[in-house]
Design a protein around this nucleic acid. Sequence first.
DNA 1: ACCTGAACACCGTTCAAGT
DNA 2: ACCTGAACACCGTTCAAGT
Lengths: 171, 171
Amino acid sequence: VLDAALVVMEARGLDGVSMRAVAERIGVTPMALYHHVRDKQDLVDGVVERLLSEISLPAPELPWDERLRALGESLRASARRHPDAFLLLLRRPAATTAALRVRDAVYATLRDAGVAEPTVPRLERLLSTFMIGFAASESAGRFAAHDRPTLNADLEWALARIRAMIVPESR
Amino acid sequence: VLDAALVVMEARGLDGVSMRAVAERIGVTPMALYHHVRDKQDLVDGVVERLLSEISLPAPELPWDERLRALGESLRASARRHPDAFLLLLRRPAATTAALRVRDAVYATLRDAGVAEPTVPRLERLLSTFMIGFAASESAGRFAAHDRPTLNADLEWALARIRAMIVPESR
DNA sequence: ACCTGAACACCGTTCAAGT
DNA sequence: ACCTGAACACCGTTCAAGT
């Protein structure tokens, strides 16, 4: 059902994802979709949820800063795969099941870094916001003037500051 | 020309901004718009540029951290006024004249904070990315589960860490 | 230079009808 | 329960024509 939508999106972009195009892809009449999805908004939400559940979580054995870096790279990779759908992450409440899965991975990572329990959710919000903003800027076009090495260096620099911010905090 | 588009957007959202609706607002036929704008993409770009030039820059006499806070508040205010158009900031290259105006204000602020010259552009990219991501999350719906005081506190907390990050750096 | 009318190829969605 | 055909009210855009 949603797989067809993802295929269409990969081929023709988010704007190409019309009820008619998705239906044609399945080989069915457009109106048939309304039996599996409430309306187009619902279909797009499903696609965004799929995108979120595709992002891979790092192995919990890794050191916490490696895990944070890996999570960032996963986000960037999925943003590159679906540039327009990624932007929609900012529209959907961050409380869907697929979003919670990622969020909990960040929580666990921050706890392992020794972040004090009450600040874990706050720091997660800030880090996720930054990382989603960065991945979206990179893949949607805001960073068009900057090449990949520059952006990689930006992130390394940021990670170093974040590490410095977290470590003294844990004492 | 673009004013009409902004009025329509404020009334019916970004999706309501159609060539036909904008034309009707001006009292003209839809095709007349094509003499002032290349296509719809061009019209939307114009709207986003307008949005950027509306954001107010803080007085340069203020202490640098106050200025940073004020810039953040300006961004949030304009995101609240135009939630969907704000998201499009992430799609447009950050090198339009209106975007440079804001960027240069951040540059000046960071210099006054004593940030070393080579890291000014990098830090600006990271801060803007975070701040745009935050304002977009707040106004587009990602932070729907969090109330305003919580988000304000998030930002204050972040500002405090950013301040701590910047000050030792300048020595 | 600026605007128009008619037309083309699309949309999302409803509704009654079919199996 | 699932799918269809026809229809409605929209889109962006082109093109020839008007002033």
